[in-house]
């Protein structure tokens, strides 16, 4: 245990001075220590102080994973923290890192487009529904999700600077990638043609050349002479009769009727 304490102090020091490399090595040593002390997944009746230390270590681990851009590792730390956040919530004093980490997790689910998981997680938050709006950490991802679903992409774009936690920055890029693709697919359906200049602003690009490369990626036709994007009109949707499905259904009915009569 004494060894653990020293390592823990080291970890806190290097975490505060943002020494990512040292944090990594210390974390893996500490995790082994936690397992040996039976604290990683608390068993038996550990003392409160030990639990708090274990929670601290895991929290630092989660934030460290984001800083080192290691999402799977964040996922692991987060599931380990779940035990502390849900099962021991009545015993332990609330951690000030809890909501930032929960909120990071929500944003992560959003960027990975796991909307169902996002809502399940949101539902299981130990907060009453009207407190969500008051909690800056949680309301941010909740608003992001709402805007994404509505289609208010400009609000998402504007909100990227208002992130309540430093570590959001890591997710911003991938989130912007997601909404750009969303907008692009909307444009394909909604416009017949669009001036390149407007497309640039609509897609939140800084200059037209970026928009051009994006257009190439999506396979859009760009009319360079009057600099507009022409969206290939999809031919009249051919209404095909789902023959196979209808036949199997009819056959199934026939078989069932045979059984009844």
């Amino acid at each position: 245990m004494a060894n653990l304490k020293a390592l823990y102090n080291d970890l806190q020091k290097s975490f505060n001075s943002n020494d990512l490399k040292k944090c990594g090595t210390l974390l893996s040593q500490l995790k082994i220590g936690l397992i040996e002390a039976g604290l990683l997944i608390p068993q038996g009746d550990p003392s409160l102080d030990d639990l708090i230390v274990a929670r601290d270590i895991l929290e630092i681990g989660a934030i460290w994973s984001i800083r080192t851009r290691d999402v799977p590792s964040f996922d692991r730390y987060f599931s380990q923290l779940q035990t502390f956040y849900t099962d021991y919530s009545s015993l332990l004093p609330p951690s000030k890192r809890e909501y930032p980490i929960r909120s990071l997790n929500l944003v992560r689910l959003l960027t990975q487009n796991r909307i169902a998981d996002f809502h399940t997680t949101l539902e299981s938050l130990p907060l009453p529904a009207d407190a969500i709006a008051d909690n800056p950490y949680i309301s941010h991802p909740v608003n992001l999700e709402r805007w994404l679903m509505e289609g208010s992409y400009s609000k998402v774009w504007n909100a990227r600077e208002e992130a309540p936690v430093e570590e959001y920055k890591f997710f911003v890029d991938s989130l912007m990638g997601t909404i750009r693709n969303e907008i692009a697919s909307c444009e394909e359906a909604a416009y017949e043609n669009l001036p390149l200049k407007d497309a640039t602003t609509l897609l939140f690009f800084n200059n037209q050349s970026e928009a051009l490369t994006f257009a190439k990626q999506r396979g859009w036709q760009v009319d360079l002479s009057n600099s507009t994007i022409v969206f290939a009109k999809k031919g009249e949707e051919n209404m095909e009769i789902p023959k196979e499905k209808l036949i199997t259904a009819s056959l199934a009915y026939a078989r069932e009727l045979e059984q009844i009569v």
Binding site: S152, S154, I183, E187, Y191, E192, L194, P195
Partner: peptide, 28 residues
């Protein structure tokens, strides 16, 4: 009661893509 025209454009675009309405936008 939307907040801005910009929003409206995106929202309508999304509605068209999702097949809620049948129409098109003319940006100019």
């Amino acid at each position: 009661h939307l907040d801005s025209e910009e929003d409206a454009e995106y929202i309508v675009g999304k509605a068209i893509r999702d097949g809620v309405i049948d129409g098109k936008l003319v940006h100019e």
